[in-house]
């Protein structure tokens, strides 16, 4: 069966992002960009399913400016078979991304779509759920285990207080949580091979999707700073301060 994996280009998780001086947006000029860590887990899961013989083809999709081809190439180096880029320089909000993915799902007809549960820039945690809604598929979000069976997939989900397992009819949408797997590193030969794998480019117009933003960011600002407090000399002083100064114990 075929799997579609969505990958997003985001500011690398090691970069500390700051607002621009005028507060209009975040300043991401010249910062390191990477594949969103949760998307990397999604690619890894697809590759493992292929290695198990469950999956025959992995298609990696990304959306955005030309540069997001780098993240598609990363997915190809990790083991995806071909890539699709939805090219646009416009702002893409999760609903628009879900609509573009829906158009691709209709064309490619994958049995499983795997996405990261959230991207570490917008922290929205929406796209997988919205794609599932638009396609009428079941959704296994925040997955820590995925088992494909005949015509269905069992997904163990990380929920508040523990784990929940659901069974979804195929085709289905799965979004990854941290513990699902540990992504491999791409080997140099695989990085070289990835350069020759097919990568198709389309755009929202061709897919017939209106990507007009529905929300507007009016302002970005740093969070209220927390002042560093004092160092205490020993445990006795700490307990004394908590009791008498902070009055929290």
């Amino acid at each position: 069966m075929k799997v579609l994996v969505a990958v997003k280009r985001v500011v690398d998780y090691n970069v500390k992002v700051r607002p621009k001086a005028d507060g209009s947006d975040v300043d991401i000029a010249n910062v390191k960009m990477s594949i969103n860590p949760f998307c990397e887990i999604a690619v890894e899961e697809a590759v493992r399913l292929k290695e198990k013989g469950v999956v025959s083809e992995i298609v990696a999709v990304s959306m955005g400016p030309k540069q997001c081809q780098e993240q598609i190439r990363t997915a190809l180096a990790l083991g995806a078979d071909r890539g699709i880029q939805v090219e646009t320089d416009a702002e893409l909000q999760p609903l628009a991304v879900a609509k573009c993915l829906k158009a691709i799902v209709e064309k490619e007809e994958p049995q499983l779509v795997i996405l990261g549960k959230q991207s570490i820039d917008g922290d929205n945690n929406q796209t997988g759920q919205m794609l599932a809604a638009l396609t009428g598929m079941g959704q296994g979000t925040f997955a820590s285990e995925v088992n494909v069976e005949e015509g269905s997939v069992k997904v163990t989900r990380e929920i508040d207080g523990g784990l929940q397992t659901v069974e979804l009819q195929l085709p289905a949408v799965v979004t990854t949580d941290l513990r699902l797997n540990e992504p491999r590193y791409a080997s140099l030969p695989n990085i070289m091979k990835a350069k020759k794998k097919p990568l198709d480019v389309t755009n929202p117009d061709e897919l017939g999707v209106d990507i007009a933003p529905r929300t507007k960011t009016l302002k970005v600002e740093p969070p209220a700073e927390r002042q560093a407090g004092i160092k205490v000399g020993d445990v006795a002083e700490l307990v004394e301060k908590l009791k008498n100064e902070a009055k929290v114990i």
Binding site: K16, D123, T215
Partner: peptide
């Protein structure tokens, strides 16, 4: 509808504050 996740303040009925980038930035979104 494009939902707004994780609001931490209500500025007006259509405008909300929410953290992005792991809370390193607070965005005001309409």
């Amino acid at each position: 509808v494009q939902p707004i996740s994780d609001i931490i303040a209500v500025e007006s009925p259509d405008t909300f504050k929410r953290p992005i980038y792991a809370g390193n930035v607070i965005a005001t979104v309409q």
